[in-house]
Design a protein around this nucleic acid. Sequence first.
DNA 1: AAATAGTTTTTAAAAAAAATAGAAAGTATT
DNA 2: AATACTTTCTATTTTTTTTAAAAACTATTT
Lengths: 395, 395
Amino acid sequence: MTVIKKHHLLRKDLIKHFYYNKRLTLTELSKLTHKSLPLITTTVNSLIEDGYVMEHELAPSTGGRRALTFLLNSQKQRYVVAVAVDQMVTQVVIYDLLNKVKMAPEATELLLVNEPVLVDKFTAFLKDYISRSEIPIAQILGVGIGMPGFVNAEQGVNHSFFKSTGDVSLKKYLTRELGVPVFIDNDSSVIALAELKFGTGKNLKDVLVVNVGWGIGLGMIVNGALFRGHSGYAGEFSHIPLSQSNKICSCGKRGCLEVDTSLVVMVERAKAQMDTGGSSSMELSYTKNGDLPVDQFLHAAKSGDPLAVSILSDAAFLIGKGMSTLIHIMNPKLIVLSGRGAIAGKIFMAPIQQAINEFCIPWLAEQTEIQISTLAPEAELLGAATLVIENCNFN
Amino acid sequence: MTVIKKHHLLRKDLIKHFYYNKRLTLTELSKLTHKSLPLITTTVNSLIEDGYVMEHELAPSTGGRRALTFLLNSQKQRYVVAVAVDQMVTQVVIYDLLNKVKMAPEATELLLVNEPVLVDKFTAFLKDYISRSEIPIAQILGVGIGMPGFVNAEQGVNHSFFKSTGDVSLKKYLTRELGVPVFIDNDSSVIALAELKFGTGKNLKDVLVVNVGWGIGLGMIVNGALFRGHSGYAGEFSHIPLSQSNKICSCGKRGCLEVDTSLVVMVERAKAQMDTGGSSSMELSYTKNGDLPVDQFLHAAKSGDPLAVSILSDAAFLIGKGMSTLIHIMNPKLIVLSGRGAIAGKIFMAPIQQAINEFCIPWLAEQTEIQISTLAPEAELLGAATLVIENCNFN
DNA sequence: AAATAGTTTTTAAAAAAAATAGAAAGTATT
DNA sequence: AATACTTTCTATTTTTTTTAAAAACTATTT
């Protein structure tokens, strides 16, 4: 039987604040949690007793008595397993509570197709990784997983992939198999969480995170928290009717943003143009390997390869058109461009800005900032870890 | 100097709950406010002492001891002035706390153009109406105003109209002139508030309200509260790039929803088609008066006039396309079609549904209900009154 | 360089609110 | 009619917040 400690909720809250802010004073914690100082004091003391928190040093002077700072105690060995799934590759890493890498990240090729073996392969990969880490199960707070598809985080199901778990939800199935609490969410939501807690969106209330990857995703932060809509599927950005193109999308409709802006499409186009004689710095590697990895395409664009830049600019313009819609409807403080595509960085900015100039009411456009993620390659793993911190019970 | 009573915030909260729910028991209030029963008991008693609340009767049995119900005391004469401004006409009414009409509604023609006299005329109209009501100023809790334009409710300014109030905000200016607290907000937001508190959206968390009027507006309810975006201008639905039409919108862009779906455009089209020989039940009145009032057009559509129905259906289809975008991004529980246009009722439904079938991922479309407002003609006035209740200080 | 005024944190005491337990009032069943 | 069961209402205890006071530190002035 699990014993629930006194002030259990507040304890969780305090640990979270330490996780996001590193070092904090009692006064800061009181303000962050909207709880009184005496209560904070006793609760922090109980956390110190349990080894979760330790006294650190005096805060720099602000004119009066210097406050004591506290931080999470790395001696208390607690870890989170973070998993980032995409259409082709699944990555995993183990962090400690200070977000230091405890076990080096590993990846496996795992094509997201709906066959029963997918779940088995996925589970086996995680089981093996965790067991090789040699971390005692009791020290693992949970496994956080970001994955594409229609994910309902609360119910713990993915309506698009990993469906073959019998009559239990994916979350329950994995929790049982791995022996640790598992939390799943949509990849874009998880990335948005990372941007909110550690990235450009830190401490902001209304932030939208556009995830450029195999598809185009959207993670929404509304009133300072992840927004999922009434049944959990908000942010289905990639299938809004926008493009004039006549190509049919995988969803069966025409005009979807995804058809013209996902990385898959961009790479396809780059290959097609090289096939028909377009010259590019990517040519050599392409003809040699017969394939063109996404990262190579993105780096080519970043270093100014005209072919890659042109393809990426076209996509970026459409993304900008989509962002215009978002700006009109949501009036966000900030839109962050994140996900794998963000590696190409600034190349995106000019065409996006151009589209916004064309499609946005200037008055509204002024109210929203657009930025490229600084977290980008790591964002999904970081967000997956955050998912655990947000939901696990510290013991 | 104003004396602030003990439990001032809780008292306000309780009065609001009574306003929205008519009769309530102590237990219900405790649950609604997340406050303890003893605290609720003493606070309700203080409200009874002040004459705001009265004991009513025993609630119907639920198996145990029957609870006492309480409700607002109509003896305590407190009133709200509700104002609904649109592009051409401004309406005003005075309600009591039970939303009974205290002074019959009146309207005046007031074209929204930006000239200094507009504010003067508007102020004079309200002053005159209020003074003729012969209600003592102290009994008026406030004036709530819903108006088109880029309204920042917090700052109390409208960036589109009523700008000539010198260096004070419109809200402050009117408060000073009328001698009672004034609260302003965007018309669509105010309608959404009405739908949330009294209409189809009652007790729901994620509701979008599409306001079909001179333009197309959007009021958003997110997490059970009005959502305004980070700087107050969320829901600028009518200027998202959607339509293929090449007509230039008043905002200077092409493809705006508003260009093809506002009531102005619909009426214009009806007139044009009659001019070129289209037959319609509206013909007689049109040729006689040389003009076609909106309401007549809407009623013609409602009663099946083919010309009106056809024009309205075309607009409704585009509105449905816009709603598809909203469904993808927001995943709302409910979309309410409200505003003046809602008078035409069911005529909208079929084309909207058709557009949703065409542009929405079926899986997502299933999660959102679409309904026609039942409050429609009164929604804006009711919402304007609600604005006062939400923000005023009961004294 | 010591004294003092001004900050801010921390601890202690008082006040307020919530949680708990018990009494009262009603319903349904035997 | 009596008993068992619900639910509301009231009183008591516990928890939490508010307020006040003390402690720790900085900066300025004499």
